[in-house]
């Protein structure tokens, strides 16, 4: 992929993000932060590539460390979001 196609994806994704996030109800802003935090750990993709690559040991260990950090975030972020969302309940109709 060349730089321009990547840039196009990025710019369009910014617009998608803009409209989607304005649609998030303010009551869920804390779960929003938790879940965005979890998904931004998709950076683990880069960490996995570095960890799997042979040749440069330093890069491999940096990659492994990044895998640990990103995993903490992924598992912790999604779990804490799920925990929060499970608490939001509607009024019981009696």
């Amino acid at each position: 992929m060349d730089f321009i196609s990547i840039l196009s994806i990025f710019v369009l994704a910014c617009f998608v993000g803009y409209f989607v996030v304005w649609g998030v109800t303010p009551a869920l802003h804390t779960p929003l932060m938790a879940v965005t935090n979890a998904i931004s750990s998709v950076i683990i993709v880069g960490a996995l590539i570095a960890a799997a690559a042979a040749g440069v040991p330093g890069a491999k260990w940096l990659g492994l460390l990044a895998v640990v950090l990103a995993s903490v975030n992924i598992f912790g972020g999604f779990a804490v979001t799920a925990r929060m969302l499970a608490m939001y309940k509607k009024k019981e109709r009696r």
Partner: peptide
Amino acid sequence: MIVTGALVGSS
């Protein structure tokens, strides 16, 4: 990563 970054960044 790009899509996520844009989403989280704008969020």
